[in-house]
Nucleic acid binder design. Structure first.
Lengths: 148, 148
DNA sequence: CCGAATCGCTTGCAAACGCAAGCATATTGC
DNA sequence: GCAATATGCTTGCGTTTGCAAGCGATTCGG
C-alpha cells in the first residue's frame, strides 16, 4: 500500500520529467517560449477576464512570487501580456492576457497536443485515456487552477 | 482522442509540479538534499555495482551532462558518492554510491514514501493504485532507468 | 597506421529560480 | 483613529541549470 504510493509517485515524476524535456524543445524552437511560460499563458486564458494577480499565478504554477514577476516582465515587453492595476486594492497588479498572447497560447496548444498525442501513441485506447484522466483528476481535485 | 491526450498530459505535469514542490521542502529540511539529488542517489542504488557513468545518469534523469557533473561534485565532497575511472575507457568517470550514500538514500526513501502516501491519502484504494501504476508504467516502459 | 569523426567530461556564460529583505498598501485590534 | 499586523509586489543575492565550446580519449575509414 505504502509501497504502491511510492512507486506511483516515482513513476509520475519520472514521466513528467520526460514529457517536460520533450515539450521544452518544441516550445522553444516553434514558439520561442519555455514550458512555464506556456503554462502561465494557459492559466490566464482560462481565468475570468483573462487575468490573474501575481500571487494567484504563483500558487497555481507552484513557483515563487518573484518568479512570476520576472517571468511576466519579458512577456509584457513582447506584448503577450499587459499589466493592470486594481481600482479597489492598489497593491494588486494583474497580469492580463493580450490579443496576441491569446493567439500565441492557441498556437502553443496545438504543439502541446501534438506532443501529448505522441506520448500516448498507439498503446492507449480511449477507455485507457478516460480512466487515466479520471485518476489524475483525483490528484489535483483540491488544488487550485486546473487547466483542463 | 487528441484532446484527451492533451488533458492527461496537462494534468500529469500539474500533478508532478505539485508533488515536487511538497517533496522539495521535506528533502531539504530533513535530509539536506534536493529532489534531483535524491533521484540521482536512487538511480545509483538500483544500478549494477551501484555506479553509473555521468552521461547515463544524465539520460535517465532527463538533464544535461553538465548538470550531472555539477551535482556530483558537492555530493562527492560530503562523501555520498565517489569517482571511479574505467580501466578500459579512460574517458569514463563513474559516479559510485558510497556506504553513507546508500544509507542516505534509504532514509530519504522513508520521507519520500511518507509524502507519497499523503498524496494518495484516503480517496485511493489498492485497486485504484494498481491500476494507476500499470497505466503510468506504459508511459515510461521504453525509457531507460525506471526506478520502481 | 593516421587523419577524421565521435564520445565522455568539464567549464564559461547567461537564463531561471527561491529566499530573504524591503516597500507600499490594506486590514485588524484596541 | 492609530499602531500593529498582514498582504502583494519587487529586488539583491546565491544556487541550479542548459547550451556551446573545449579538452582528452576512443573509434572509424581508407
Amino acid at each position: 500500500m505504502e509501497h504502491l504510493c511510492l512507486k506511483n509517485t516515482i513513476r509520475l515524476l519520472q514521466s513528467a520529467d520526460q514529457i517536460k524535456a520533450r515539450l521544452s524543445g518544441d516550445f522553444a524552437s516553434v514558439h520561442g517560449l519555455s514550458v512555464n511560460e506556456v503554462f502561465l499563458l494557459m492559466h490566464l486564458e482560462q481565468a475570468p477576464l483573462h487575468r490573474l494577480s501575481r500571487v494567484e499565478l504563483a500558487k497555481r504554477m507552484h513557483v515563487s512570487a518573484s518568479t512570476v514577476t520576472r517571468m511576466a516582465a519579458p512577456m509584457e515587453k513582447i506584448g503577450l501580456v499587459s499589466r493592470q492595476a486594481d481600482t479597489r486594492d492598489a497593491r494588486l497588479a494583474f497580469v492580463v492576457l493580450s490579443e496576441s498572447g491569446l493567439e500565441k497560447v492557441k498556437e502553443a496548444r496545438v504543439t502541446f497536443a501534438k506532443q501529448a498525442t505522441y506520448v500516448f501513441r498507439d498503446r492507449w485506447n480511449d477507455e485507457d485515456l478516460e480512466l487515466f484522466s479520471a485518476l489524475l483528476h483525483r490528484l489535483i481535485a483540491d488544488a487550485p487552477g486546473d487547466l483542463t
